Amino acid sequence: MIVWSGRGVLSILVLIASVLILSGILPKEQFDFALVAAFLITAAFSWIMGKKWNSKEPQVLIDKATGQELLLEPNHSLFWIKMQYWAFIFGGLAVVILVQQF
């Protein structure tokens, strides 16, 4: 079960799309390098878009019935980890796969 908030699921979708595209382009002998490239592409996407989407200013909403203020902060996360921090996880996985090849 994948748990996400906001646009956090896009990290997984970018990873899947990258793996499918790169494994179709590169020969089967190069699948590990396609996987490394896919993880690095996803890491870059997660960092750039996560920083952009999670750094927006919070919105203040006022409940008409009670007059109470409600603060809405952006939260784009995957498995309770903010999207930009997944860049380190994806990058680390790319390094692990790359090191195993040598």
Rank of each mutant, 00 (worst) to 15 (best):
K28M: 14
Q30G: 01
A34V: 10
G6P: 06
V99T: 14
A34E: 02
L71G: 00
F102V: 12
L15F: 15
A43T: 06
F90H: 05
L26H: 04
L22R: 05
F45I: 07
I81V: 15
M49N: 11
G50N: 07
Q30F: 10
P74D: 06
A65P: 00
M83A: 07
S55C: 07
M1R: 00
L70C: 01
P27A: 13
A94E: 03
V3D: 00
L26E: 08
S5V: 06
L98Y: 13
M49F: 09
V95H: 04
F88N: 02
G91I: 08
Q100F: 13
V60Q: 02
E69D: 07
A37Y: 07
Q101R: 12
Q68N: 13
I97S: 02
W80E: 13
I25V: 15
Q30Y: 12
W4R: 05
V99I: 15
L61A: 08
A17G: 11
K64H: 12
D32L: 11
V96I: 15
N54R: 08
L13Q: 07
F79S: 11
L71F: 05
E57A: 04
I21F: 14
G50M: 06
A87F: 10
W80V: 10
L71W: 08
V9H: 10
V19A: 02
D63H: 13
Q30W: 11
K28S: 15
Q59L: 13
K52S: 03
W4F: 14
Y85N: 12
E29H: 06
F88P: 00
I21W: 12
S77K: 02
G50W: 08
Q100Y: 13
A87C: 11
S46R: 03
D63L: 05
K64A: 14
D32P: 03
A65S: 10
G91P: 05
N54I: 06
H76C: 03
V36S: 08
A37R: 00
S23N: 13
P74Q: 07
A94Y: 05
K82V: 03
I97A: 06
Q84I: 09
V9L: 15
E69W: 02
D32W: 05
L40A: 09
L22P: 08
L70P: 00
S55E: 12
F45D: 05
S77W: 00
I62H: 11
A87V: 04
F90T: 02
I41C: 13
I41Y: 10
M1Q: 02
W80F: 15
Q30C: 01
L78Q: 12
L15T: 02
V60N: 01
R7E: 01
F102M: 10
V3H: 00
V3Y: 04
L35R: 00
V99F: 14
L72I: 14
N54T: 04
K56G: 01
P74G: 05
K64P: 15
V99E: 14
W53E: 08
E57P: 00
I25K: 07
W53R: 05
A43Y: 04
I16L: 12
S11D: 13
K82T: 04
